[in-house]
Amino acid sequence: MKIYVKALGMHLKSELEYRVNFILSFLSQILVFFTYYFVILSLFTKFSHIKGFSLWEVLLCFSIIQFGFSFNEVFARGVDKFDELIIRGDFDLLLIRPRNILLQVLCSDSDFVKVSRIIQAIIVLILSIIHLDIQWNILKVFTLFLMLVSSCVIFFGIFLMAASYCFYTIQGLEVRNVFTDGGKQMAQYPIGVFQKGFVLFFTFIIPYAFVNYYPLLYLLGKKEQYYYGLSPLLVFLYLIPCIMMFYQGMKRYTSVGS
C-alpha cells in the first residue's frame, strides 16, 4: 500500500512536470464530460420518461457509472493501459522486482487528469440526489455507497480481464472496448430500459445490472425487498474470475524480443 501511494505521488509529480498541458487537459475533460451529459439532456427534452425513469433518475445512474470508470482511470490506469506495458517490454522490469505483479501493474501508470471527471461525476450525483425525492433510510445510504464501490469494482474487473487478453495476443483487443467503453455507454442508463437480451447479458455475463439497475430500483422505491439494495455485493464475486484470468495469462507470458 505504501508503495502504491508513493508511486501515485510520483505519477502526479511526473504529470505536473508539464504544467500547462496538465491544466488544459484537465479543463478539456470537462467539455468531454458535458457532451455525455448533453446527450442525456437532449433525450429528455423529447421524452419526459424513458421506460419509467425520469431525467434525474437516469443522471443518478449515469454519475455512478462515470464515477467508477473515472476512478479506475486514475487509480488503476496501469491495468487499463496494460497492453502498452507488454508491447514496450516494460513488463519484464516488473518481473525482476520482488513484489506482487498486480500491485506493480497498478503502480505502473496513473492519469490524474481524469480526477476532473471524478469531481464532475460527484457533482452530478449530488445534484440528482437533491432533485430526487428519495425516502432515505440507513440501508438506502448503504446501498448508494455500495453502488459507488461496485461501480469501481466492476470496471476494475473488466479492465483486468481485458489486460489478460494481452498475454495471449500481445496487443490489446478492440473487443475489450465493447465491454469497457461500450458497456459504459449502455450502463449510463438503467439497464432495464433496454431489450431483455441486453438485460440478461449485463446481469449474468458482465454484471452491470447489479451496479446500477437492481439497487437503483431499491433506492428509488420501485422495489421494496432489501436484497435489491444489497445486490451490488455480487459484483465482488465477479472479481474472482477476472483475477484468476490475469494470473493464468501471466503463465503464458513470453516477453517481447529485445
Binding site: E17, G89, D92, S258
Partner: peptide, 14 residues
C-alpha cells in the same frame, strides 16, 4: 540486479 541497456527502469520525467 538487472540492467537492460535498451530499457529503462528509471522514471522518465522525474
Amino acid at each position: 540486479g538487472v540492467v537492460f541497456g535498451q530499457k529503462s527502469q528509471l522514471w522518465w520525467d522525474i
